[in-house]
């Protein structure tokens, strides 16, 4: 019946499906063709060809999709709001002299420290606790579920947790407030009280990212050979000792990957903040300020400068990862 109500969409369904199928078939055909042709060429040609085939597409996409925009951003960060006049470092000076920016930098730092550590720790704990559990699949699926929820959905979900009812005569719709009242405490206005609110927003991110950490780490643990564990048991290593001395070192590589990935995600976070506090009440972070400047204040200069500052935040992470790789190579 409801087909009638949709005037345009169904008219385009067929071409859309055709486009989808053609897109997939063409893509697969190209890949197969490249492999068939490449494997028939001479070894010498192949040695050059392999870079084009394996690295070429990714590099092309990266150059157009990310490197060019990044350079453009760097360029714009030295210009004024409408990208017309060169103003040197003024946007950067602006960023570091704004009184609010200290809070923003502090918040970004808190996010990038707390979220990765909390998510990884909890994810690791669950991976370990469920490693040989009976209904592990169910438990893990429940923890993973937030990963499958969009930010749009997550912000709705958490509204029903953090909602605050100022009128004492009305019923609470926020779960936290209701729990507080049930045990005889006076709930604060959750999203208003700094620095509590930053941590409440962080909790949402941890809630989402723990599933990612758990899945990766759990898989890593499954790959720890049984005989190593059994050997350690024969050596008399018990629970905690076995965890720290055997499991952790065995999966350390995965832990680093997880920590790194979540740190990058937290560095870029802005949806949660934008939907839940709008960056008010001292909860803003750099990515949110960047969005605000670029798309609300329409100042591409300051927005770009903030993006470049954000980019600097990844440097420590790179250094950390390079060191880990070096260490690993020394061991080998």
């Amino acid at each position: 019946m409801w087909i009638v109500t949709a005037r345009s969409p169904f008219a385009t369904v067929l071409p859309n499906i055709v486009l989808l199928l053609v897109g997939l078939v063409v893509f697969v055909a190209i890949i197969v063709l490249i492999f068939v042709l490449s494997e028939r060429t001479k070894e010498k040609t192949q040695n050059r060809l392999k870079y084009f085939v394996f690295l070429g597409p990714a590099l092309l996409l990266l150059i157009i999709g990310l490197i060019y925009p990044a350079i453009r951003t760097l360029y714009l960060s030295f210009f004024d709001a409408r990208s017309e006049n060169f103003i040197g470092l003024q946007n950067y000076i602006w960023a570091f002299t704004q009184p609010e920016i200290l809070i923003v930098l502090r918040n970004t730092l808190i996010w990038t420290i707390v979220v990765p550590i909390a998510s990884t720790t909890i994810g690791l704990a669950i991976a370990y606790l469920t490693d040989r559990m009976k209904y592990a699949g169910l438990v893990k699926s429940l923890i993973f579920m937030p990963m499958a929820i969009s930010f749009v959905g997550a912000s709705i979900i958490w509204k029903f947790v953090y909602a605050y009812q100022p009128d004492p005569n009305k019923e609470d719709i926020g779960l936290l407030s209701a729990i507080f009242k049930a045990i005889g405490l006076t709930p604060p206005n959750w999203l208003l009280e700094a620095p509590l609110n930053t941590f409440l927003l962080i909790a949402v991110m941890v809630w989402i990212q723990t599933g990612f950490a758990m899945v990766v780490l759990s898989a890593a643990m499954k790959a720890v050979p049984d005989d190593i564990i059994e050997a350690s048991m024969l050596d008399g290593a018990k629970g905690w000792a076995r965890f720290t001395r055997i499991t952790i070192p065995m999966i350390w590589g995965s832990v680093i990957v997880v920590l790194t990935t979540i740190t990058v995600t937290s560095l870029k976070v802005f949806d949660i903040i934008r939907t839940m506090t709008g960056g008010n009440f001292q909860t803003s972070v750099i990515a949110n300020e960047m969005y605000q400047q670029s798309f609300r204040a329409l100042n591409y200069g300051t927005g770009s400068a903030l993006a470049m500052i954000l980019f600097l935040g990844v440097l420590p992470l790179i250094i950390f990862n390079v060191r880990q790789v070096r260490k690993e190579r020394e061991v080998h």
């Binding site: 990266l62 999709g65 990310l66 990044a70 870029k268 670029s294 993006a307």
Partner: peptide, 14 residues
């Protein structure tokens, strides 16, 4: 590592 660093390039700018 250059590719790795590109993870932080905010989508909005592209």
């Amino acid at each position: 590592y250059t590719i790795f660093a590109m993870q932080v390039i905010p989508l909005q700018l592209a």
